[in-house]
Simulated assay, not measured.
Amino acid sequence: MAVAAGRAFLLLPSSACFATSHTNLLKHSFGTTNTSSLVKPGNARGFAQHVARAQVRPTWLPGLDPPAYLDGSLAGDFGFDPLGLGEDPESLRWYVQAELVHCRFAMLGVAGILLTDLLRVTGILSIPVWYNAGAVKYGFANTETLIIVQLLLMGFVETKRYMDFKTPGSQAKDGSFFGLEAALEGLEPGYPGGPLLNPLGLAKDVKNAHDWKLKEIKNGRLAMVAMLGMFVQASVTHAGPVDNLLEHLSDPWHRTIVQTLANSGS
């Protein structure tokens, strides 16, 4: 509604002759007119500019006023917080970092699932479908050893990330990471850099890298939705995403999500 109103105001007359013609029309139609109720050309232009500036900030629902604590300064901030989780500034900082980490894991997960499923379906590699990969016994180490190694490595990384969140920049100081600080160059919480984590040199000035941050968070949110879809898909069809795609393409009019869900309940 606000967008429609904004567009309507932007079409207000910007010339004196246009306003005069409307005044004459009102006189002929009603016999009198109140010129004070008409918007003057200068005021129309100023109001149009004000409305145009107000419409620069996109929101997840057009016309909805975002909460005051979501001022658009965060990457991907479209004013979406129906539960009010970000009212507390400290909680909002944590949720931003948590979303960023989940986005990156989801993007890696989706890429890994699609790649391995493609290699499996084409017969290039003899590997299990992605949701059974965790049950496979690997010859180079037993399951218990793999779990312990993963806990140690992930625990170390997550601890470092939490310490940098609590005290920004503390993990980039000399001696904080076995002398590899120069190779990582911590830029700000959630955005490490250096040749190891930023080999292409993108967004070296992370303070002014809003476009890169926005692209990452958008793709990450899409990946989280895709990951959820793959979970549901595997639970319903007991097949990989490439198998599901090939099955759909074999008969697009009858092998759809509607038929699949209907048959799964029978």
Rank of each mutant, 00 (worst) to 15 (best):
V232L: 15
L11D: 11
T159Y: 12
D211T: 14
T159R: 03
T237H: 03
G76V: 12
T23E: 14
L70E: 11
S14Q: 12
L108E: 13
K213Y: 01
F78T: 09
V236A: 01
N24P: 00
K207T: 15
T167M: 14
Y69I: 03
E181H: 02
L180S: 06
I124S: 01
A262F: 15
I113Y: 05
L228W: 03
L125E: 05
V101C: 12
M107R: 15
I124C: 07
R221M: 05
A226V: 12
W130E: 02
H248Y: 14
G86N: 14
K160D: 00
T20Q: 10
M230P: 02
E99H: 11
V129R: 04
N142A: 05
A75L: 01
A203T: 04
M154V: 06
E87Q: 14
A141S: 12
N34G: 01
L146Q: 11
D71N: 14
G42V: 09
L187T: 03
V136P: 02
E247R: 13
Y131P: 00
D174Y: 12
H50M: 13
A203L: 10
G72Q: 08
S73P: 03
T59H: 15
G112V: 07
L197C: 12
P62E: 10
D251H: 13
A75C: 00
L85S: 10
A75S: 07
T59Y: 14
D174C: 02
S37M: 07
V242Q: 01
M1H: 09
A68M: 04
V110A: 07
A106I: 08
R93Q: 09
V232T: 09
G194R: 09
R255C: 15
P67G: 14
S15Q: 09
L228D: 01
D117M: 08
S37R: 07
